[in-house]
Simulated assay, not measured.
Amino acid sequence: MKNIVWGVFFVLIPIGAGAQQVNKITRLAVSRVKQFDTSGLRVVRVGSDEVEATNRKGDILRYRMDRKRNPIPYHCGIAYQLFEFRKGYITRITTFAVDGNMAGELESEGEAIMELEIKKKDLLDKQLARIDEEDGNLDPKDEDQQIVLARVYDDRKRLLAEHYISTGYYWELQHMMYRP
């Protein structure tokens, strides 16, 4: 079977001494989200207006910028998404407003944080490998196997819901396919 490689437009935004203007603007945008550790900061522009900032821990802060390099919100006023990873697995997604304060999606009961707890790592790894083999086009309806537990909180950190999710949905979150 031949591998098909799809072209994706990536532009590295330099953060070194020769890029003081970009550095200052980028650091200002990223620094609004206090929960994002900027140590080892690397910034990649994805497409025409989306930016992903990565830190030393492997966490990713995603946001969009206009031509004047100001953050522009996605849906419901959400401007930033922080994806936190541990040992290569996504463990938490948090959303923030343009000012960097935690903000929930109004259309979904104010959901601002989703914590993901892996209950059966070996089974998750097997399911993720199956989904990868199908390029993400497989959604096992395996919530009843209690592989990954999701806890959803509002911006005041009040628990809104707690339920098991499918490994297919976890795969989408792991690949950062979610956008507000």
Results as ranks from 00 to 15, higher is better:
Val44Trp: 11
Lys157Asn: 12
Glu107Gln: 03
Gln21Met: 15
Gln21Thr: 13
Glu50Lys: 09
Ile72Asn: 14
Arg64Tyr: 02
Thr94Pro: 05
Met1Trp: 08
Val98Thr: 13
Phe36Thr: 02
Ile25Pro: 07
Asn137Pro: 03
Phe83Lys: 02
Glu134Thr: 08
Asp135Val: 08
Leu116Gln: 02
Ile93Leu: 04
Leu28Trp: 15
Ile113Trp: 03
Gly168His: 01
Arg92His: 12
Ala129Arg: 12
Tyr153Thr: 08
Arg62Ser: 09
Gly18Lys: 15
Glu84Cys: 10
Asn55Leu: 05
Glu133Phe: 09
Ala19Tyr: 12
Glu134Asn: 11
Gly16Arg: 09
Met102Ile: 10
Arg45Met: 08
Met177Lys: 10
Met176Ser: 07
Glu111Leu: 07
Val11Asn: 13
Arg64His: 05
Leu116Val: 04
Gln145Cys: 05
Met102Gln: 03
Pro71Trp: 03
Gly100Trp: 04
Ser31Thr: 07
Tyr153Lys: 04
Arg179Ser: 12
Asp59Asn: 12
Ile113Gln: 05
Gly18Arg: 15
Val30Arg: 00
Ile90Arg: 01
Asn101Gln: 14
Ala97His: 11
Glu84Tyr: 03
Asp59Tyr: 02
Gly100Gln: 06
Asp99Ala: 09
Gln174Pro: 00
Arg179Tyr: 09
Ile93Lys: 02
Pro140Ser: 00
Arg86Tyr: 10
Val51Leu: 08
Ser166Val: 01
Gly16Leu: 08
Val11Gly: 06
His163Met: 14
Tyr178Leu: 13
Arg179Gln: 04
Asn70Phe: 12
Ser39Lys: 08
Glu134Ser: 06
Phe36Val: 03
Asp122Cys: 12
Gly136His: 01
Ala129Pro: 07
Gly100Glu: 01
Arg42Tyr: 14
Phe96Tyr: 13
Thr91Gly: 05
Asp66Glu: 05
Ile93Cys: 01
Ile4Met: 07
Val33Glu: 10
Ser108Thr: 06
Tyr153Met: 06
Ile165Ala: 04
Leu41Glu: 13
Lys24Asn: 15
Glu172His: 09
Asp139Lys: 15
Trp6Lys: 13
Asp155Thr: 09
Asn137Thr: 07
